[in-house]
Design a protein around this nucleic acid. Structure first.
Lengths: 199, 199
DNA sequence: CTAACTATGTATAACAC
DNA sequence: TGTGTTATACATAGTTA
């Protein structure tokens, strides 16, 4: 009616057609923003979007989302940031199983590194695995979670970079410290990832 | 001076401080947009951003970027979308190597599936692996690539979903069909992923 | 679907604290 | 860093072609 925009209500659009139309437009806007950010600030940006009908749109500042994701999972102590709780009953392919396996093997490796550190030896090559977990963000109105624990931060003098992290999510995501992680490996999986039915 | 915005020039910001400030603001804007998109359109959205100083910010509509990425790599015939060309000399961890290995194993599995189909047997469980590749997008002025090949689309009657894909990237990314993929596995890696030095 | 159009809502650059 | 203000650029919902 009003020929301009109405004020935005952040709520699921019920009409399938308008939902798809809105998706198409906003998708382009976000890709544009992501591209601008990566150029203006000279940073790595990766973006994955699925349309309501299941079509993929992805963006990666350097060409491949896989590379961004590799940087993502290669953070020092990447498992510190969240607990590992895959729904193994929903694993639908050899590849997917392999990725989960890799997460676990990575975790085991990190445990080995931690043990080695406690013993005092330094064989491993990761330069820095002190992470200050600082997840934030609030959804439209609820499901807000903030667990900035910010413990004492020791820092490897050889590293200049600051490995903090911010994890923004609406779902049931936790950011726990490394020790808590281990007891939270729940391989019999709960009711997670509602929209993620891999067809 | 002008107390409002100046027109945006999509060009790397040279001043490190303003670059970081701009990043901080725009990062929040993109997360907000990504969240709105996922709620309005009820879709899976994953976002990974690294600040100029290396800090990670990630967003995932369902809680975990890993889950979005799993859906990303679990697309039917995910290798169709691009050629596999990792820089093996830059692989810096067991985990990373494992991921590459998984990509290859996945590819091998897909080849097996294709072969099985050519023979006429249908043992594999992927319901649909017909993909119409439709990458798009143009950067600020150049590095534009469009390879919408749109070949004949056969469709599995049991599948309703349409698995098309759009890949938006500024880097040297190609979208080739499945057969071309095989000859493009270049394990001796070229000059790829300039900003992705895994520290 | 694709492409305009346009009024209006939003994001944000520049500045101040 | 963070917060707030303001002017302006930009994004986009609603609509038409």
């Amino acid at each position: 009616m009003s020929m301009g925009r109405n004020k935005l209500l952040v709520k699921r659009i019920e009409s399938p057609t308008t939902r798809q139309v809105i998706y198409s437009k906003r998708k382009d806007g976000i890709v544009k923003k992501a591209n601008e950010l990566s150029i203006l600030c000279d940073t790595d940006v990766g973006l994955i979007m699925f349309s309501p009908t299941g079509r993929l749109t992805s963006f990666a500042s350097n060409g491949r989302v896989e590379d961004i994701f590799l940087r993502f999972i290669n953070r020092p102590d990447e498992l510190k940031g969240g607990y590992y709780n895959p729904n193994v009953e929903k694993i639908g392919s050899l590849f997917e199983a392999g990725v989960h396996q890799q997460f676990l093997e990575n975790a085991i490796q990190h445990i080995g590194q931690s043990k080695a550190k406690l013993v005092g030896s330094r064989i491993v090559q990761q330069p820095n695995d002190d992470v200050e977990a600082a997840p934030f963000y609030v959804a439209n109105d609820d499901s807000y979670r903030d667990e900035s624990e910010n413990p004492d931060i020791r820092r490897d003098p050889s590293s200049v970079e600051q490995y903090g992290e911010e994890i923004c999510s609406m779902g049931p995501h936790l950011s726990l410290n490394f020790l808590k992680v281990q007891k939270n490996w729940n391989l019999s999986g709960g009711g997670q990832a509602p929209k993620l039915g891999i067809k």
